[in-house]
Amino acid sequence: MQRRNLMKAAALAATLGMVAGAGHAQDAEKKVIGVSIPSATHGFMGGLNWHAQDTIARLGKAYPNLEFVLATAGDAAKQVNDIEDMMATRNIDGLVVLPFESEPLTAPVKAVKEAGKFVTVVDRGLSEEGIEDLYVAGDNTAFGRVAGEYFKTHLPAGSKIVVLRGIPTTLDNERVEAFQKALGSDVEILDMQHGNWNRDDAFTVMQDYLSKYPKIDAVWAADDDMAIGVMEAIAAANRTDEMWVIGGAGMKEIVKRIMDGDKQLPVNVTYPPALISSAIEMTALRFVSNAPVTGRFIIGSQLITPENAAQFYYPDSPF
């Protein structure tokens, strides 16, 4: 809900800004905004890429004096190169960056800021505070906490669950720690292995969980790609009725199944890839209006339930 409002607010502000500054914008000089994000290597990033492109196309049409430069990087080093190239050859005025990793990107982004550019950091914070003008992020702690609370309230004491973790990162650690804290001690976590946010890996890990543990009451897959692999492994072992699965991030297929009231997938926790849209829109706003756009915007993680699922369903997104 929070995210929707935020987007509405941004859109509203943008429209206002356009009307108000229409005469002003005519002869305004061209502004270039660089967007640097990780490449689409798995479902969530695929969705994020889609939203980024979609937003850029939309804004490019709405504001002819805005130009966008989009670069996707497969690793942190490539992303640093991308940003340096943007500065050197495209002469950007603003930068929207979702850092691949915090440490290696901090210095290059700081350099952009010191050159007097407007900097928006998305999702993963830099390792030094106060560099960015605008910070837009999902809430990893809430992501783990919301899931943990659901498990705690919906499982009787003494239940046993298994957990699939993502690629070993601080982000993954934050989520898992918050999950464990919210879960409390009544529910036992039998095992936690890395499924690397990958369907095939999650399938394999879940198969082995099923061999190892005769009784599992629920699975926290922590990611919808992993949830799909997990459910396939459960189905193959004919233990679909024994346990339910909670994924995360709101992949459209999963949201659809929640909408349809699938028993195995009671709820989901959001971590919307659309947060990149908000970040790009707010950055654009900074250049087309005089509205002050700074600060921190944390988009909380919410529970998707069969009742509210419809508003989280984007059939056109690849994710």
Binding site: A40, T41, H42, G43, G46, W197, N198, R199, D200, F203, D225, I228, G229, E232
Partner: peptide
């Protein structure tokens, strides 16, 4: 097996 393919397959 999973009925899907993506950039992270294989």
């Amino acid at each position: 097996r999973l009925g899907s393919a993506s950039g992270s397959t294989g």
